[in-house]
């Protein structure tokens, strides 16, 4: 038995189950909705904005290294290749996973979840749960490259020897991570289960 079938809504903030006719939760005061409000629209809007930010994040330099007066702009993928050539395989793989693979998979996963919630695609309920859980879990880890730039720029202030400036991609990348986190947060996995309940196998 689902809460919605009993005319009940569970508060998104504190989890209290109340009559769906109430506008506010009696315990925590949050607005009460049966499902997250405009969930699909918000999820898609943040997701597309995230994809837009993903492009400059990969094309623009993430940092500009000034070594003995010579400036060199590094992109994220460039950094992965540099580490790979230096035989620092674990670092190259870590950066690749956190900066390229995870954001890409997040877009795919959110796209599939939205399609399933909109009834365009049939997704098994538990699989959808796992996809959503992982999408929410890994979101923050993509921020790692932005933090690397902050640390390197902060510590490498060696006068004429070497300095590091943040590049445009650090902002674009940070924005992309924030937007995809907002997108995942806006999604309501109950929409998928609602579909499954409506059309029994």
């Amino acid at each position: 038995m689902r809460a919605v079938d009993e005319g009940l809504a569970s508060c998104h903030t504190c989890g209290r189950v109340e009559s769906a006719s109430h506008h506010r939760c009696g315990r925590c005061g949050a607005a009460l909705h049966v499902r997250k409000e405009a969930s699909l629209q918000r999820c898609l809007a943040f997701g597309f904005a995230g994809i837009l930010a993903y492009i400059p994040a990969n094309v623009m330099p993430i940092m500009i290294v000034n070594q003995l007066g010579i400036e060199q702009a590094n992109t994220i993928l460039g950094g992965v290749f540099t580490f790979w050539r230096m035989h620092a395989y674990p670092v190259a793989i870590t950066i690749f996973i956190a900066s390229v693979l995870i954001p890409g998979l997040k877009f795919v996963s959110l796209g599939l979840l939205c399609a399933a919630a909109a009834g365009k695609l049939r997704l098994e309920g538990r699989l959808a749960n796992t996809m959503y859980y992982l999408t929410e879990l890994v979101g923050r880890w993509s921020m790692v490259d932005v933090f690397v730039v902050v640390i390197l720029a902060g510590v490498i202030q060696l006068g004429n020897l070497m300095t590091i400036q943040p590049g445009g991609a650090s902002l674009a990348f940070g924005l992309m991570v924030i937007l995809t986190m907002l997108s995942a947060h806006a999604f309501d996995p109950r929409l998928i289960w609602d579909r499954l309940n409506k059309e029994p196998i």
Partner: peptide, 26 residues
């Protein structure tokens, strides 16, 4: 409510991974 809204945004462990990656460059 604020604690629940902000807990996903705490990124200390991500920053720490960033520090480890930076160390390998440094």
């Amino acid at each position: 409510r604020l604690l629940q809204a902000t807990e996903h945004w705490v990124m200390v462990e991500v920053f720490f991974l960033g520090a480890l990656v930076s160390l390998l460059k440094l």
